[in-house]
Amino acid sequence: MRRLAGRVLFALLLAVIALYTVFPFYWAIVSSLKSGSALFTMEMFPAQPAWDNYAAVFRERPFGRNIANSVLVAGSVVAVSLFLGVTAAFALGRVAFRGRGMLLAAILAVSMFPQVAVLSGLFELIRWLGLYNNLLSLVFSYLIFTLPFTVWVLTTFMREMPRELEEAAMMDGATPWIVLRRVFLPLMGPAMATTGLLAFIAAWNEFLFALTFTLTDEMRTVPVAIALISGASSFELPWGRIMAASVIVTVPLILLVMVFQRRIVAGLMAGAVKG
């Protein structure tokens, strides 16, 4: 009898956990499918789903453009971070040189930087480079949080590769560059996919730099566009539209995360716990 009660309580606990994590997103989906005064009802399953919020998001604002901006920025940030990260990880993980520990510690310290602390210095640099209100300013500034993470995780993976691999190639007269490209790059595939994915999500979600370094609606990335959707007054916020936009940008992310969930957890472990 006590066992049964325990099992029922445990099942209840799991149900509460599941409801707590999933309900807010479910409610956003439901709300995005209600239009007009239906939005203010507590209907849990919209009997007649209305899609006009979704159409309106693209009709009333440059939301398609905002999505393209986010894809472009996040994609470029991932490409640049992986290139810089894997070359650096090769040096940090495979070659013993003085100051290596110091360098790794300095890189870790950068990942603790509050973004606000570099805001005015970066703003000056970006204006000087003529990149204000240009997506390149975001590709550049996002390196501050993607790069330390990428270097750190790729270095831990690089270190675990067997030494014999490169010795054989070196004996054959291969240069370090060839060793990296021909020997390590193929083996680093899974690690690079994981770190790339995490960097992509971080860049996709970034808000502070995107809000500060872009000015016009056409240059906004998705988070800024969603944050700045507004109505005539706070009472007239177009909540249906906001929820539709939120669902549009979140569904691909959730699918990505579901497909790669094992890798993501492993990557987070390598980044946070091994650190």
């Binding site: 599941a18 994590t21 999933v22 807010p24 997103f25 409610w27 956003a28 709300s31 999500i201 996709w204 979600n205 808000f207 998705v222 988070p223 800024v224 969603i226 944050a227 909540w239 906001i242 929820m243 939120s246 940008v249 979140t250 992310l253 959730i254 990505l256 995360v257 579901m258 969930q261 993501i264």
Partner: peptide, 21 residues
């Protein structure tokens, strides 16, 4: 897998979702 949903949602989006709730 469900646990990863809140983590993957952009902070701005979760703020808006909760603002509405």
């Amino acid at each position: 897998a469900a646990m990863l949903i809140p983590w993957a949602i952009p902070t701005v989006v979760s703020a808006q979702m909760w603002g509405w709730m």
